[in-house]
Design a binder for these strands. Structure first.
Lengths: 350, 350
DNA sequence: TGTTAGCACTCTAAGTTGACGAGTGCTAAT
DNA sequence: ATTAGCACTCGTCAACTTAGAGTGCTAACA
């Protein structure tokens, strides 16, 4: 059987309607509402064909049709009415991210909140993988007699610190010397290169008593570890409850529990992301079995070229793909611009 | 009508049973299950009295009785079987917090997760109010030509930083001088004392060109602001879905939305906390109308004597008060000890 | 040959009914 | 003061009915 143009138009009408109404669509509805110049009987025949071809499914014998994952896939790839944001929507997205932020994590929190609010789906952002980032500065700052702060900055401008105890004998001058040494030796290295073992070996060369050096090295290693494990921000997790496909308590619970337990959804978002551009995973296309009746739209953003983070929107397969895709695309741009500003690659400062 | 001993025993039995079963309790159940030496008819009469006195309520004419908020109040204050944690439970709570943490926020996240997991209710922790904390160290660390990091540490060992741009002409030596100046002048001051205006005035005395000084002052002010707005950690928000009183979707949605929108629940947790000891707010005792059918148990912990943060557990009014109260009490102790360790008031280091 | 009207059939959702059981309040006996 | 007994109330549940939406098929039509 061939997928002719008329079938496509009918399929599009059905999916458009279903996305809006969330109820199985019958042939009469399509005949009445869409100006296809066809009677319900003809559409009925076409729908039977579309079902046979796997684009539609029937919940039960005497119900209307519902799009299948395959149907959505065709819809997203070919049929979907291309929409772009109008100026009001652009303003809405832009204004919320506009509040000056000083940190990547704040930026991502905001972006997530805005997107979730705009799309009414659950939105997530994961911080970039830092494995390939390099150390820019390591500093030891005296805080109190016997206490100091180790501060590590990487090339993405991410800062981590660790409060440590040092011997009371450590003078500010000694700390400064160690600080300079660490800075000299570690600056420019990737995290892998500067792994714990290496830091340890470096320590021996320093020629400072071990009870001063040790906590500093530990603190440095700790900062690096902190940077490596990425964080995830989730907003609008309860949005899902507004969609009828989750009116069943168990489904809703399952979904919410998944979000609570961040590791697996975090991995799903990562894995879904494509190097450049937008990824749409529909229903069974998802590896994670617990979101087999959801669609996950992701986009990746870059920090300082090498580090890649991801933003994702998750909702029922019956999702407003047009809106979601256009807004996540635009948000990628906003976030990228803002990151550039944060990292100081833009002329204007603050 | 007088609240004699027998009435109390019956009320206790009813509430014990209701907390367990979540269903209206009838007179026969009490007569059968509890060895009160009374027939169901007698208990029936007593129950009618207890209802008239406001300790019980009847969902509808021919149903059993359900505790009212007033009933729970008496139960918590006088009737409740006092329980303390057994050694297994203590071990469970302790072990999870035992993982070495380096930061207050991590500690709170863990404590929240453990309590939520242990009690099966939603658990929250809010970071301390920092208004009254004092500045310990202010440091400016050069990062790149034209970029620097302002680091502020307060007396609770909380660290905040801000990445700033400075004039390219700023030498490392100049930054150091400013750093020392800020450190000298601001160290020991409370945040109020070191407010933005003050920092600004201080700046003028410094005698450094304004395009170097300005961003540093801004960064410092930003760090202070960051410390002032507290964070909140929520765990086990979906636990509520396991309780039958939230089987109604709308109720569940309302509760979860409340948690999403953190400000009001954060305030509720703060307001509920009592200077020392545990606060239990039952149902209508809560100011926040959207949790009028929940109970909120809170405890406050101290950081460096002056700063007060709060941990809270929220669940249906039909809550296992004994378990919740004993575990939150113990958690307060664990958290306090760990904070002391973090702040270095204990001999052993890491 | 493609399209359409008509019709019998299927299936679900929603409403109705009646039996059942849990629980109460009252009364009279102990 | 306590209790047994009983009539009464009310909610739950399952069985049944009905209405409506939608289909597939067939036959007529352009």
């Amino acid at each position: 059987m061939i997928m002719d143009d008329r079938k496509k138009r009918i399929l599009q009408a059905i999916i458009d309607d279903y996305i809006d109404k969330a109820e199985p669509i019958g042939s009469r509805t399509i005949a009445r509402k869409y100006e296809l110049g066809l009677s319900s009987a003809t559409i009925r025949n076409e729908m039977a064909d579309l079902e046979e071809m796997g684009y539609l499914a029937q919940p039960h014998t005497s119900a209307g049709r519902v799009p299948s994952d395959k149907g959505y896939r065709l819809y997203v790839d070919k049929l979907m009415p291309q929409r772009s944001l109008n100026s009001d929507e652009i303003r809405e997205l832009k204004s919320a991210v506009n509040t000056r932020v000083y940190e990547l994590s704040q930026l991502l929190k905001q972006a997530t909140a805005v997107l979730s609010n705009f799309t009414k789906y659950t939105t997530m952002a994961v911080t970039p993988r830092m494995r390939s980032s390099t150390i820019k500065t390591v500093q030891v700052v005296p805080v109190d007699p016997g206490k100091a702060l180790v501060v590590v900055v990487n090339n993405a401008g991410i800062v981590r610190n660790a409060l440590i105890k040092v011997s009371e004998h450590a003078t500010s001058e000694m700390l400064g010397r160690i600080s300079n040494l660490l800075n000299d030796r570690l600056s420019g290295l990737t995290f892998e290169q500067a792994d714990t073992e290496r830091i340890r070996i470096l320590g021996r060369e320093a020629g400072v008593s071990v009870d001063i050096l040790q906590p500093i090295l530990d603190g440095t290693a700790d900062c690096i570890h902190q940077m490596e494990d990425h964080e995830m921000y989730v907003e609008g997790s309860t949005n899902i409850l507004n969609h009828p496909e989750f009116k069943d308590m168990d489904k809703a619970k399952q979904f919410l529990s998944l979000l609570d337990e961040k590791t697996s959804i975090c991995r799903a978002v990562y894995d879904s992301a494509r190097p450049n551009g937008i990824s749409v995973r529909i229903g069974s296309e998802n590896d994670l079995s617990s979101i087999r009746d959801c669609s996950l739209v992701t986009v990746s953003y870059n920090v300082a070229d090498t580090m890649v983070g991801t933003i994702g929107i998750i909702g029922p397969t019956r999702m407003e793909y047009g809106k979601v895709i256009s807004s996540i695309r635009y948000m990628k741009r906003l976030v990228s611009e803002e990151i550039d500003r944060l990292l100081g690659n833009e002329p204007e400062s603050m």
